[in-house]
């Protein structure tokens, strides 16, 4: 063992070269396909969310306009703000935020309906199995209780989340009222525009 350092060096070099062979063809060959796949999945998910918002808005007579189903609600700032570019720009910016909050409520509404639909289908399928024999009926009866409980838990969670989202929406509306008040005194904007939207959300979304 006169030259231990050279031996160690040689071993390390061999290990390095073995690793190089082992890594072929290498992640760089596959990575683009992974990126394409995730981008496609994200596009699909976005399309699903957007489509859900659209469907829910159209099916709500207060949201979809009869002459233009995709238009949704209209909301005005009032004549004083209309004349002032700064005011109207601020108004539009805040309306965008309120629009996103409302869209979330409509999207979640659609998701709730779809989940309830699939739970209903499962319950029907189980009852079909349960009608075949007495022992099966006993098992199905127990499972029905579990499904009903799961549904109730889901509805409770949905309501909690929905009420929190509606509260946020109301905060945004009150904020906008303050901004319009800064530009134009005594507009009662919230009473005329914000409150009806808040009440609509409060009536429509919680189960």
């Amino acid at each position: 063992m006169k030259r231990p350092f050279e031996i160690i060096f040689a071993i390390l070099l061999i290990m390095s070269s073995l690793q190089t062979v082992h890594a072929t063809p290498g992640s760089e060959v596959f990575d683009p396909s992974f990126g394409n796949m995730t981008a496609g999945a994200s596009a699909f998910a976005t399309a699903f969310y957007n489509y859900s918002v659209f469907q829910e808005c159209v099916s709500d007579p207060d949201c979809g306009m009869p002459d233009d189903p995709g238009s949704g609600f209209e909301i005005g700032a009032g004549s004083c703000c209309d004349e002032n570019n700064d005011c109207f720009n601020d108004f539009e910016r805040h309306v965008d935020r309120i629009d996103r909050a409302l869209a979330t409520l409509y999207k979640n509404e659609r998701t709730y309906a779809l989940i309830m639909k699939i739970q209903g289908a499962r319950m029907t399928a189980m009852r079909g199995v349960g009608s075949m024999s007495a022992p099966a009926a006993a098992i199905v009866a127990r499972q029905e209780i579990d499904i009903a409980k799961a549904e109730q838990d889901f509805t409770d969670n949905f309501n909690n989340k929905t009420l929190a989202n509606i509260s946020k929406l109301n905060d945004f509306l009150l904020e906008l009222d303050t901004i319009i008040d800064d530009y134009c005194a005594d507009t009662d904007w919230y009473q005329r525009n914000g409150l009806p939207l808040y009440l609509h959300a409060r009536m429509k979304f919680p189960k």
């Binding site: 699909f44 957007n50 918002v53 609600f73 209209e74 209309d82 309306v95």
Partner: peptide, 23 residues
């Protein structure tokens, strides 16, 4: 199929800012 066709579309507006009195 509708969701598949919906790819690339923007999020629909639920709320629009308008001048004057809203509908």
């Amino acid at each position: 199929d509708n969701v598949e066709d919906y790819k690339g579309r923007e999020k629909p507006r639920v709320l629009h800012a308008v001048k004057g009195v809203a509908k």
